[in-house]
Structure formats: structure tokens, C-alpha cells
Amino acid sequence: MIAQRQVWGETLVELGASDDRIVVVDGDLANSTKADLFAAAHPERFVEVGIAEQNMVGIAFGLSTLGYRPWLSTFGVFLTHRALDPIRMLVSQTGAAVRIAGAYSGLLNGRSGKTHQDVADLAIMRTMPGMTVLAPADEHEMRAAVRWAADHDGPLYLRIARDAVAPVFDIDTTWEDWAPRMLRDGGDITVVSTGVQTSRCVDAVRLLADRGIDARHIHVPMLKPLDEDRLAGLLGERVVTVEEHTMIGGLGGLVAEIVAARRSTQTVTRLGLADGWSESGPDAFLLDKYGLSASRIADRIVGVHSRPVGTPGV
């Protein structure tokens, strides 16, 4: 198992060898995000900005006007929250080819706690017109996403996890398109997940099978743009969304919007982080306490499944 951040850094090193357009703009965290790999391999195209996230975005945009395709390297929360205004005006409103690497996304950030957790990135970034929003499941899909991004013209947000998860896909994964993918078919309930939570959901779905529940599992690697009809067509009667993200406005919000807009009969239950702040602690502790470990997810889905069909979701 390799962490997504490691793969992100390694893949940029590889791409940077033949693609002069790639530059990395760092906010004093390259040795956390793994942009230090790029700094060592391509020092002439590594721009250290210091602890100044808004300035990072402005400089990256300025570089993009000269044909560069800059990647931003810092903890995602400081980009999606602190630097959102420059992202909005300089990147989203212009369609600039700036790549926002949301490192240390979600709940698990090396025991830094709520000040450094980004649990609203998907909700925020998907409101930005023209923004591509990617949340790969594992190291292999991360590699494919970074490679795919090299030839993408517009702005892009990439959700990157700090710590390794069990791989979901093969090492040679490349996608023709980034539409929702069915990982497992099943008739009892539909589990929709995104990001590295998909890896934990693979385990959760196995636990459900052991308990006699045959779940369909759909992974959404790209929340925007999204083939909504394709996703809607994959949903069974009872839908549970699962994400390492606030239950407000992310994948769960997205699926609920799709179902509601179609006046479909499905019920959607959104599993994610409740509307509150969390804390610092080991990964296993946080996943268990905040309900996102495989076993906690399985328990929560059993609870949903035990209710009669048609019971409203939450």
C-alpha cells in the first residue's frame, strides 16, 4: 500500500520530466504533501511561496497565463477555505489551468485535528463553475488522475489522502472516462462512495455480505462534471452515500439533488461526518468514533436496511 500523496509526488516527477508546463507552487509543506519529490527532481520548476496560500493561488494563476499548468501544494483546507476568494476570481472565473491539490483531505491528517481537517472541500469546490472535482479511491486511481490532469485544460481540484488505504483498483488503471463505476452489483441496497472512503466501503460491503445483505457498490471518482443520468440509472430503491466529508453538500448532497430533481422514488441516506467539528487522534480511533470505519459503516447500513422500504432517508 502506498499513500496517495506519495503517488501524487512521484507521478508529478515522472510527468515533469517530459512536460515543461508542469510547475509546483508550494506553501511551505512540500515535505508533507510530497511535492518535495518534485522539488528534488525539477528544482527549476518548483516555486516556494512560503506560508501564504492566497499568494500561492495568485502566483499560480499568473504562471498559467504564460502556458504553465501549476499544481498547488499545501494542506487542502487552506486552499479551499482560506484561499477560496482567489480560487473563485482568478481560477474559476477565468477557467485557468491551475491544479488545486487538496492534500491531507478529510478526517485523517496525522493527528492534527479539526484546525487542519478539510471536511467540506467537495461541497465547496463543486460550487465553482468550470471546476473539475476528482476524488480517487486509492493509489492506482490517484496515479491515473494525475496523469489524466496533465492534458486537462481547465481548473481542477484533486482530493488527496495522507495515509494509505487498501487498493481498490489495479496498478495499470487508466480510465477512458471518469464516470461513476459499479464495483459490485447487488439487489438489497446501493452504496455510493467517493475518495478513499471507497476503499473502506469495499470492506464494509464484504461485511454486509457476511450478514446476508447483498449490496451494490458504486464509486464516484469525479464529482464534477458528472453524468447524472448514468449515476441515477445505477441507483437501486434504497441508496446510502458514504464519504469522509461532512454529510452536507458533498457526495450525499449531490446524490440527493439528483434523486430529488428527478422526483425519483429512491430514499437516500447520507453517511458522512455529522454537522460538527471533530478532534485529533489516531486514524483508527477517528474512523471508529466518527462512524467511517468499515465495521461502523456496515453497522450503519444494516440499520438503514432494517427499516421498511420507503422509510425516509436521513
Partner: peptide, 12 residues
């Protein structure tokens, strides 16, 4: 925001 943009252009 403009000075950051100009710095990016000048660096480029």
C-alpha cells in the same frame, strides 16, 4: 490579488 498575479507573471 493583482500583485500576486503580477509576481506569477514575472516569475514565469
Amino acid at each position: 490579488q493583482g500583485l500576486s498575479v503580477a509576481v506569477g507573471m514575472a516569475l514565469g
